[in-house]
């Protein structure tokens, strides 16, 4: 129990008749980077707001570090750093001043706050400390936001769409920074996003969120297993044809143990099998006298998973 830092059970949020979050159950262990994935309006932000006690759930319970977020939001907020989706700073103050203010709201003494703020600004790569935040670029704001989240030395950080509106290089750097922080400080990270490949790179586990429901969770491999589970492993082979008859190849492959079906389109073959038998298939192809130009096991990325779920949820 204690190893789960975030525990949601039966969490529901309704706005009138509209169900934003529907009976959500989720457990996130300590030190994990969890990605909450879903399209806009799936209920990701609402879930995050409930985690912080910024809105009340209609039913169900939220526990962060074993503390009920709805009843004792202040205790939870001591331990959780939150980076909102559209974060803003006091534009007429410098980045340093903004950080110091946050630190002092967390009851960090002024001198310590100042040192910590300077250290964190260095860490997130903002060198000009006295620049007014009004002149910051989007990427700089996001970095400052990260520093703002870290200044209270949280146990958990929650990032709502942290990569939104940043250029690809900035995204890379930001995600790398998040990963590094999580590893170095043992932070639990919950981040929401609709950008799949970005999240795929840093998350230990992801949850797919559609229409207020968490329809699948796990690491990317087990997610694809959950989703494409009924389907066997697919191996794609591209062959160079000679004059030999096609049937021979297909027959030869079908004879291989664990192979269920073979599909052929021109020079590409899709082979479904229950076990990974790439090696045997290669052998079968070559023995049947064909040239083999490409052979690989198909991996399902988050995009495929996402796409698949969308098709499902729209039906």
């Amino acid at each position: 129990m204690a190893s789960h830092i975030i525990e949601l059970s039966g969490l529901t949020k309704k706005y009138g008749d509209f169900v934003a979050v529907d009976k959500l159950d989720l457990k996130i262990p300590k030190g994990e980077i969890f990605g909450l994935l879903g399209p806009n309006g799936a209920g990701k932000s609402t879930t995050i707001l409930m985690l912080l006690g910024l809105t009340e759930p209609t039913s169900g319970s939220v526990k962060v570090c074993g503390i009920n977020s709805t009843r004792e939001p202040v205790e939870v907020k001591k331990k959780v750093g939150y980076l909102p989706e559209n974060l803003g700073f006091y534009d007429d103050r410098s980045g340093l001043d903004n950080l110091i203010y946050t630190a002092r709201l967390n009851q960090i003494p002024e001198q310590e706050a100042k040192e910590k703020a300077k250290m964190l600004l260095q860490r997130v790569g903002l060198t000009d400390q006295n620049k007014k935040t009004g002149t910051y670029s989007r990427g700089m704001r996001q970095r400052l936001g990260l520093a703002d989240v870290l200044i209270k030395s949280p146990e958990v950080i929650i990032l709502d769409e942290p990569t939104l509106g940043i250029d690809p290089k900035g995204v890379q750097e930001l995600l790398q920074l998040i990963k590094q922080l999580s590893k170095e400080d043992g932070l639990t990270v919950l981040l929401s996003s609709h950008h799949l490949h970005q999240v795929q790179k840093v998350c230990d586990r992801v949850g797919l969120f559609v229409n207020g429901k968490l329809i699948a969770e796990g690491d990317v491999a087990s997610l694809s297993a959950q989703l494409f589970g009924r389907e066997p492993i697919t191996i794609e082979a591209r062959v160079i044809e000679h004059d030999k008859s096609k049937k021979d190849v297909e027959k030869a492959i079908k004879k291989v143990k664990n192979v269920k079906a073979v599909q052929k389109n021109q020079d590409t073959m899709l082979i479904d099998c229950t076990e990974d038998v790439t090696n045997e298939i290669a052998q079968a192809i070559i023995e049947s006298g064909l040239g083999l130009s490409q052979l690989y096991r198909r991996e399902y990325g988050l995009d495929d998973i996402y796409q698949r779920y969308f098709e499902k949820s729209q039906v």
Binding site: L54, G88, T102, L105
Partner: peptide, 14 residues
């Protein structure tokens, strides 16, 4: 409107 409210409210204050 400037987005500071949610940041401030996520600090441990009532």
């Amino acid at each position: 409107n400037s987005g500071t409210l949610s940041r401030i409210m996520s600090q441990p204050i009532h």
